[in-house]
């Protein structure tokens, strides 16, 4: 298994090139994420246009306070992720670990608050099949939640590696690319919050 071109022995790469490739790859992947959610956004606008009453009635069931709180929680999480990248770029090991841990902390907060939103609704019998607004609501927030969970597992991996001392000013591509993904999760919520909760 030691010939080049096998799983454990890649061709040698220039680290800067590898970093650039990695980053461009993630930006392109984010483009696919935009269109993945795009289908749901398109459905949202169409259904809101056809059935404005159902959307108004449905939106009034959502808790604006919890939605707004979650927006802030995710923004803070995003902020600490950006600070993690900054810390990695400056080789600040302790700060990197602390910031990644804070990112994870706020991310878990998001999930818990989401739970406080979802569970009472489901208990009241408001389900994805209740009407078309709640279909959209559960599908968008559910898919977003799935992305939060995936993002958290990436950040967990980054944290584990950061504790192992893997990242420094010459090698921070992993943190930056993980960060890109996490910020996209934030950006999507930035759009979901006003569309679902406020208007």
């Amino acid at each position: 298994m030691s010939e080049p071109g096998t799983f454990f022995h890649l061709h040698e790469e220039d680290p800067v090139e590898a970093y650039e490739n990695f980053k461009l790859g993630m930006w392109i992947f984010l483009a696919t994420e935009v269109l993945l959610f795009g289908g749901l956004f398109a459905a949202y606008f169409i259904f809101k246009f056809i059935w404005p009453d159902i959307f108004e009635a449905g939106s009034s069931h959502l808790n604006r306070f919890l939605g707004g709180l979650n927006t802030l929680v995710l923004i803070f999480s995003s902020y600490f992720m950006a600070m993690s990248v900054d810390a990695a770029q400056r080789s600040q090991q302790k700060k990197l670990i602390r910031n990644l841990a804070l990112t994870l902390f706020f991310a878990s907060g998001f999930i818990i608050i989401k739970g406080f939103e979802w569970i009472p609704k489901l208990n009241h019998g408001i389900t994805p099949g209740s009407d078309v607004f709640f279909s959209v609501y559960y599908m968008t927030t559910g898919l977003h939640l799935l992305h939060v969970v995936i993002g958290m597992s990436f950040i967990g991996l980054l944290l584990k590696r950061a504790i192992g001392g893997r990242y420094h000013s010459e090698n921070f591509g992993g943190v930056e690319v993980g960060g890109l993904y996490w910020h996209l999760v934030d950006v999507i919520w930035i759009f979901l919050f006003p569309l679902l909760y406020l208007i």
Binding site: T32, L35, L36, G38, L40, A43, L143
Partner: peptide, 22 residues
């Protein structure tokens, strides 16, 4: 293009399992 069919097929599966209304 692929992500759009991805979400569409996901919605179809949801439609069958959770009776959502897309």
């Amino acid at each position: 293009a692929t992500p759009v069919v991805g979400i569409t097929l996901l919605l179809l599966v949801m439609e069958r399992t959770f009776q959502i209304g897309f």
